[in-house]
Design a protein around this nucleic acid. Structure first.
Lengths: 129, 129
DNA sequence: CGGGATCCCCTACGATACTG
DNA sequence: CAGTATCGTAGGGGATCCCG
């Protein structure tokens, strides 16, 4: 049989099915700046629990977007990095960041604080001190 | 006081706070092809309930991303369209669609069916019949 | 250090029915 | 046609303890 086994209304839904988790875009965003260890991600993403981080990372690994590199040693060392396929999301993720940045300023003005701001976004305007 | 009233780890979180709903990206995506009535969106988005559609649209209106145009007449007629600010999401939404399209093919091959495919995406490759 | 296993809560979401 | 109101539920997500 050649019937479709999967039906989407739009391809956007296919995107959301993979990237739609609460923390996934944030994880991926951080990985666009290089491979990261579990602990690093925990520190970067204040608010996430170990369980959620592990779970979401696992789903991203299954989807072929993130690679998990485990060094067999003790204490354990595990690194996560984007696969080649995963890198195709970089532009998207950085656009999200830029839009969020503009939106945050639009809504909160100078009463918002963004802890991690990549170099690129900072370039948008060089408002001196 | 000038303390920040809002703190994000990254601006991506600010993006997700506004666009992160289950149906919001899909709604917005459809609106990038012109204003739509409630019933049209219901038909385009098989699976969504009236309640969720109304709710998510309401939040988008509050965020200033979507405009609600109500014609006072009976039977009622209400249209939704992107605000000027909302249009700033178009590139992002279409990138999501393109990525989802590629991903769906990568995962399901020809066993996936996408009901609504915008002209642009179809252009990616003209694989004849 | 990284991450399983459990327990539990809560809210996002769905189904249904009703109104202007 | 567009939108409420109500109720019920699944599962996303948090806290905690434990293990290699």
């Amino acid at each position: 049989m050649q019937e479709p086994i999967k039906i989407y209304n739009t391809a956007v839904e296919a995107f959301l099915e993979v990237i739609g988790g609460k923390w996934k875009p944030v994880i991926l965003f951080h990985l666009t700046f290089g491979k990261k260890r579990n602990g690093e991600l925990m520190r970067l993403m204040s608010g996430v629990t170990q369980k959620m981080l592990t779970q979401q990372l696992g789903e991203l690994v299954e989807a072929g977007i993130v690679a998990r590199i485990s060094y067999n040693q003790v204490p354990p060392k595990v690194e996560y990095e984007l696969t080649e396929y995963g890198w195709s999301l970089k532009e998207l993720l950085h656009l999200m960041c830029r839009w969020g940045d503009i939106h945050a300023e639009r809504v909160y003005g100078d009463k918002v604080s963004i802890l991690f701001t990549p170099p690129q976004v900072e370039d948008k305007e060089n408002t001196g001190p």
